[in-house]
Simulated scan of single mutants.
Amino acid sequence: MPQRIDGSGETVRFTFEGREVAARAGETLAAALIAAGETTTRDSVVSGAPRGPFCMMGVCYECLVEIDGVPNRQACMIVAEPGMTVNRQTADEVVA
């Protein structure tokens, strides 16, 4: 399982699928989720297969999540903020 190289720094907390996740200040949602052992952030719109962070730089769109009720947000491009509510994005929630 991936681990953080440096565990120091301020911690912010958000929820993912109703579970509290700790992130370091300045860390993206995708990085925090991977460090917490979460590898699936959405379902494929074509097959329904699980998808998750891949490129970590906003190119592939595999890490789409719903943040505070807003779908189609890239977890690798959004810095974790205290109190965010993040959920997996299902295939039927994808907005073109």
Rank of each mutant, 00 (worst) to 15 (best):
75 A>M: 08
63 C>G: 07
37 G>M: 13
32 A>P: 01
33 L>I: 03
52 G>V: 14
36 A>E: 02
91 A>K: 13
68 D>M: 05
64 L>Y: 08
74 Q>R: 13
21 V>R: 00
10 E>R: 10
25 A>E: 08
78 I>S: 05
47 S>E: 13
21 V>W: 00
8 S>V: 09
66 E>I: 00
70 V>M: 06
88 R>W: 00
86 V>D: 06
67 I>A: 02
3 Q>N: 09
26 G>S: 12
27 E>R: 00
10 E>T: 13
9 G>M: 14
41 T>F: 06
12 V>P: 07
66 E>D: 08
12 V>A: 12
11 T>I: 12
89 Q>N: 03
60 C>M: 14
25 A>M: 13
68 D>T: 09
79 V>P: 06
75 A>K: 05
11 T>S: 12
51 R>I: 04
6 D>A: 07
24 R>S: 04
51 R>M: 14
95 V>K: 08
17 E>T: 04
8 S>A: 12
14 F>W: 13
71 P>L: 01
19 R>E: 05
57 M>V: 15
70 V>R: 01
52 G>M: 07
31 A>T: 12
21 V>N: 10
77 M>C: 13
43 D>C: 07
68 D>V: 08
83 G>A: 15
49 A>S: 11
42 R>S: 09
29 L>Q: 07
63 C>T: 07
90 T>F: 05
51 R>T: 11
90 T>L: 04
96 A>P: 11
66 E>Y: 02
20 E>N: 09
77 M>L: 15
73 R>A: 06
85 T>S: 14
38 E>R: 05
10 E>H: 11
79 V>I: 14
92 D>A: 02
40 T>D: 11
38 E>I: 00
78 I>N: 06
83 G>P: 15
50 P>W: 11
45 V>Q: 12
37 G>K: 14
9 G>L: 03
59 V>C: 12
78 I>G: 02
32 A>Q: 00
59 V>L: 10
76 C>K: 09
35 A>P: 05
50 P>L: 12
78 I>V: 14
33 L>E: 03
30 A>D: 06
87 N>M: 08
78 I>Y: 05
59 V>W: 09
10 E>P: 04
10 E>Q: 14
67 I>T: 07
44 S>G: 02
68 D>C: 04
58 G>A: 11
52 G>L: 07
84 M>R: 10
42 R>Y: 06
81 E>Y: 06
29 L>P: 07
70 V>A: 09
89 Q>S: 01
41 T>L: 11
48 G>W: 15
88 R>E: 02
25 A>C: 06
23 A>I: 08
31 A>E: 14
84 M>L: 15
47 S>G: 11
53 P>L: 06
22 A>L: 05
85 T>L: 12
2 P>E: 10
55 C>T: 14
48 G>V: 13
3 Q>D: 10
30 A>K: 07
85 T>W: 09
28 T>N: 10
50 P>F: 09
39 T>M: 08
64 L>K: 02
21 V>I: 13
52 G>K: 14
69 G>V: 04
49 A>G: 12
22 A>V: 03
77 M>S: 12
63 C>K: 02
92 D>I: 00
20 E>M: 06
49 A>V: 15
12 V>F: 05
86 V>R: 00
23 A>C: 07
70 V>G: 01
54 F>K: 09
28 T>Q: 04
38 E>L: 02
51 R>V: 05
35 A>I: 06
27 E>T: 03
12 V>C: 10
28 T>K: 03
4 R>F: 02
